Simulated assay, not measured.
Amino acid sequence: MSNSSTTIDRQKGFAGGAELFRVRQIPDSVESKPVSHVAADPPSVNPAASKAYYFWLMMPAIIVLAFISIYPFFWMIYMSLHDVDIGKVEWNNFENFTKLASDTRFLMGWWLLIQYSVMCLTLQLIIGVFLAVALNGSRWEKVLVTTLLMPMMVAPLVAGMVWYFLYNGTFGWYHWLFQSLGILGAKSILASADTAMLGLVLVDVWQWTPLITLITLAGLKRVPQDQLEANMVDGASPLRNFVSVTLPNLYPVLLIAIMLRFMDNFRFIDSILVLTGGGPGNATKILPVYLFEVSFKFFKLGRGAAIALILLIVTIILGMLLVRIFDRQQPKKA
């Protein structure tokens, strides 16, 4: 009797131990779809700020921007519709705009501005892309990029003064170099109507090509290396690789560079005023220079406002076209 009871107690003990050390069964649904428990955000001491609060924070900046940009814009429109003189403003029935159609200097200013912008952009793109490709991955890339950026840090007025002395027909080093090579005669490059525009273009190319180089160099860093390596495995030459892979990836970056530079060419006249002032004759009197003369030399503020408004509208339209071209090159979202 005792043996049987002992056996029964042992079996109960084994059963209890097995129950104690049994592995807990977890359903597959729990393992495959764990439930995340996110702790509630702690209560904030300060209440959430209203939209009016942020509006009042931005109000000083809005007032300053309105004062320096919006107010002059509408005042320019107002002046373009009137004859503005000291102490007198008279409505002129859109004559400031209608007379521009027969103004030969206004039309010639547009033609010279197009020539100047096209020559500057073409040379800057060619030289800038070449320098960026040459510097990309170079051992001295950082040092050379810093050195190339120095002309861009110079004020346009100072750059014009420096090149004015370099072009000087008496002691200018560049004048001596061009004369030694047989490119120039006794006249300075700025004294001849045939070469003055080229002299201005060289100054702009010297100062702003580093910007194109910097933007292009940033674009080269994002060119997919796997595409380049795949083309090289297929036997493509470096030139073919550049045309078929690198250049399409640089296309959006170059569009941004073109937009920035063409807008600058439409408004920068500092170096031109220092070097030629629009001369010799009217050979370099691009439209912004003509606008400066009409407004601040002859004080025809109404006529100058009309020219400035037309120039602004054309610049905005061309900028919108470039932005639309840029948007078309971006990959569409699915």
Rank of each mutant, 00 (worst) to 15 (best):
F299G: 04
F299Y: 15
D83H: 13
T170M: 08
A15R: 12
K333A: 06
Q225L: 13
M76K: 02
A40H: 07
P60A: 10
T216Q: 01
L184V: 09
G302D: 05
P210R: 12
W111E: 07
G16L: 14
F242C: 07
G219I: 12
V118Y: 06
M150E: 01
M58R: 01
R10D: 10
P288E: 02
P224E: 11
P42Q: 12
L273R: 08
H175R: 05
F94P: 02
N231Q: 10
V245M: 04
V154N: 02
I70F: 13
R22Y: 08
K332N: 06
R328D: 01
R139H: 10
S295W: 00
K51T: 09
S102M: 10
K285E: 15
T284M: 04
F55P: 01
C120R: 01
F292Y: 15
D226C: 03
V35H: 09
F266D: 02
K300L: 11
G235T: 10
A230H: 09
G13W: 14
A334D: 03
I77H: 03
I183G: 01
A334Q: 03
V133C: 04
Q11C: 05
P252D: 10
V145M: 15
F266I: 14
L250H: 07
F178K: 07
P43W: 11
A155W: 05
I286C: 01
A196S: 12
K88A: 12
L217Q: 07
M161S: 06
P151K: 12
H82T: 12
I212N: 03
L273D: 02
L321W: 08
I70W: 08
A230N: 09
Q11W: 13
S29D: 11
V201M: 06
D103F: 08
L211F: 15
P280H: 07
D234E: 14
L144R: 09
G277S: 06
I256C: 04
V64P: 00
A48I: 12
P210C: 12
Y71C: 05
W176T: 11
G16C: 04
M320Q: 10
I183E: 02
G109T: 05
V205P: 03
R324D: 01
G109D: 02
E293S: 00
T98P: 01
H175P: 01
N92V: 15
L214K: 09
L65H: 00
D85W: 08
V323Q: 11
A193F: 03
M263L: 15
A132T: 10
N168Q: 09
I183S: 04
R22S: 11
V84P: 00
K297Y: 07
V243Y: 14
W75D: 14
L202H: 06
W75Q: 14
A15I: 13
I258K: 04
L184C: 04
G278T: 00
I70N: 00
D85E: 14
N282M: 06
M58E: 00
W206H: 10
S138A: 14
M153I: 14
S237E: 06
L318Y: 03
Q227C: 05
Y174D: 04
T315D: 02
G160K: 01
G277W: 05
T7S: 11
L131G: 02
V30G: 04
M79V: 00
V162M: 15
A334Y: 03
R240G: 11
T170Y: 13
S271R: 02
G128W: 07
V30Y: 12
I77F: 13
V143G: 02
L250C: 06
T147V: 15
M59Q: 07
L291F: 06
T104K: 14
P27Q: 11
A134E: 07
